[in-house]
Computed example of a mutant assay.
Amino acid sequence: MTTSAAPRPADSSGTFALGGDLTVNRLGYGAMQLTGPGVWGEPEDPDEAIRVLRRIVELGVNFIDTADSYGPFVSERLIREALHPYPDDLVIATKAGLTRSGPDDWRPVGRPEYLRQQAELSLRHLGLERIDLYQLHRIDEQVPLADQLGELKLLQEEGKIRHIGVSEVTVEQLEAARKLVDVVSVQNLYNLADRSAEDLLVHAERENIAFIPWFPMATGELARAGGPLDAAARDHGASPSQLALAWLLRRSPVILPIPGTKSVAHAEENVEAARLTLSDAEFEALAAAVA
Rank of each mutant, 00 (worst) to 15 (best):
S122H: 05
Q242C: 05
L78K: 00
P112V: 09
G150F: 04
R80P: 11
N188D: 14
E207F: 05
A177V: 10
H236M: 09
V184W: 00
K95L: 07
R26V: 02
G14A: 08
A232I: 01
A177G: 03
R100I: 10
E113C: 05
L200A: 03
E268Q: 14
A281V: 13
A119W: 09
A96S: 12
W40G: 06
L189Q: 14
D47C: 04
E76C: 06
F73A: 14
P108K: 03
G165W: 03
E269T: 12
V166F: 02
T94I: 05
F283W: 12
A6T: 14
V183I: 15
G36R: 00
V24Y: 02
D89H: 11
D68W: 01
K153S: 13
L152H: 03
L154H: 05
A244R: 00
P216Y: 06
L98K: 02
M32C: 12
P9T: 04
L115A: 07
P112W: 05
L174H: 04
F63L: 11
I164S: 00
G97L: 07
T277F: 11
I258L: 03
S167P: 03
L154N: 10
V109W: 08
V61M: 00
D140I: 14
F73V: 14
N188P: 05
G38V: 13
D11T: 02
R275D: 08
G41V: 13
E48G: 04
I209N: 02
L78V: 11
R51D: 15
L200C: 03
A49T: 08
P259H: 00
H236S: 14
S4Y: 14
A238Q: 13
W214R: 02
Q148Y: 09
S75R: 02
A96W: 05
A197K: 02
E207D: 09
I161D: 07
S12R: 07
F73P: 12
E58Y: 08
L276I: 15
G41M: 08
T94P: 10
G38S: 04
G220W: 10
F73D: 15
I131N: 12
G226T: 10
L18H: 05
L90G: 07
L286N: 01
A96G: 11
D230G: 07
L174F: 09
Y134D: 08
I255S: 07
E81D: 14
G150A: 07
L18W: 10
S4Q: 14
F215T: 10
K153D: 13
L174G: 06
G36Y: 00
L243N: 05
T23E: 13
D194C: 01
Q33T: 15
L128T: 10
S185H: 01
